[in-house]
């Protein structure tokens, strides 16, 4: 068994990661840290884990060496402690944005911070297996993906890889768990329930990842908007793609099957009947799936591609375990076989 510890395990992503690692055949959870909850049993914060483990949170200063260190800290913390963390574990998977982008200038622009450890940026691999599988397999340091970026990139990748897209507008709908476990005025239930609230209409930091990952020789022209809706988990990217040349639906199926036909966690969902015709995050909660669907508009060059995920799974903790499975040489789907619930 490989020992794994989680830094920042009291948050939603850290808690989901703990659920997955506790159920994983090859990982043994060694320590989980939380400054606020140190000494308390984990189920005080993660009620679903009551009876599953005797683990208690420990303080960061008590962190001991282990094989794999998962970092689930808020953005802007891991970047200041990476040397220390690297001294404790051979492998690091960072769920935050601190090592996602290659260009320090992006951190100045999107995260208003002068990156304190820019020399580490080239050492981290962008942790989306469907696009960087071989690189991840041979990496010691992998960064997690942004949840909105994950479903958008996966939806758009087959079209951008083939240089078919003129311009795309990505309109993402998201649940409240994206905001994390800290309460704010905006997340106060009477204010948050039932909203259709434009969140970052004209500039969202996850755009940086799209521009980085979908650049195949020319800077992609992509626009990005996020709207919060009435859900806890879930992210749905509706990508309005304007293609250089129109394509038929049959060609689209061919393109997406070619890229994703063998992927264990991507399902193509474009059906002609039934109420579940297109991807919908509602049925993905707890699963590591990214469902992708598409619709061709007659008489225009617009193709609508939809990508749905559970932001805490394929958009965060599930993807981190998938990447770790590759890094450690475990089966890629190990510990990630929950299919989701219906109805839910």
């Amino acid at each position: 068994m490989v020992s794994a510890s989680i830094v920042g395990a009291s948050g939603y992503a850290g808690g989901e990661l703990l659920r997955l690692l506790l159920g994983h055949p090859s990982f043994k959870v060694k320590q989980v840290t939380s400054e606020t909850w140190a000494g308390k049993p984990v189920h005080f914060v993660h009620p679903n884990l009551r009876g599953r483990t005797e683990l208690r949170f420990v303080k960061l200063e008590d962190l001991e060496p282990c094989d794999v260190l998962f970092l689930a800290l808020p953005h802007g913390q891991a970047m200041y402690q990476i040397e220390h963390f690297a001294s404790l574990a051979h492998y690091i998977v960072d769920l935050s944005a601190d090592f996602r982008l290659k260009d320090p200038a992006d951190y100045r622009r999107w995260y208003e911070v002068e990156h304190p450890a820019p020399h580490w940026l080239p050492l981290f691999t962008y942790g989306l297996p469907e696009i960087h599988r071989e690189e991840i397999r041979s990496s010691r340091y992998v960064s997690g993906v942004g949840c909105n970026a994950a479903c958008s990139i996966l939806a758009l990748y087959p079209l951008y890889r083939r240089k078919l897209v003129e311009m795309a507008i990505v309109d993402v709908k998201v649940g409240s768990s994206e905001g994390g476990s800290k309460p704010t005025q905006a997340s106060h239930h009477p204010e948050r329930a039932g909203v259709m609230r434009p969140y970052a209409p004209a500039s969202h930091r996850h755009l940086a990842e799209l521009v980085q990952e979908l650049n195949f020789g020319e800077k992609p022209q992509i626009y990005f908007t996020v709207t919060s809706v009435d859900a806890v988990r879930g992210a749905l990217a509706t990508c309005h793609c304007f293609l250089k040349e129109p394509v038929s639906e049959k060609e689209l199926w061919k393109i997406y099957r070619e890229d994703y036909g063998a992927e264990p966690f991507i399902r193509l969902v474009s059906a002609k009947q039934g109420i579940h015709r297109y991807p919908d995050p509602k049925v993905l909660a707890g699963s590591n799936y990214c469902d992708i669907g598409f619709a061709v508009e007659e008489g225009t060059n617009r193709v609508v591609v939809m990508g749905a995920i559970d932001n805490l799974m394929k958009g965060s903790a599930g993807n981190a375990v998938q990447a770790a499975n590759l890094m450690l040489g475990f089966p890629e789907t190990a510990g990630l076989d929950f299919p989701g619930l219906h109805p839910v």
Partner: peptide, 11 residues
Amino acid sequence: EIITCPDCGVE
């Protein structure tokens, strides 16, 4: 006979 495509659900 009418059968359903498992991928796109068309008849």
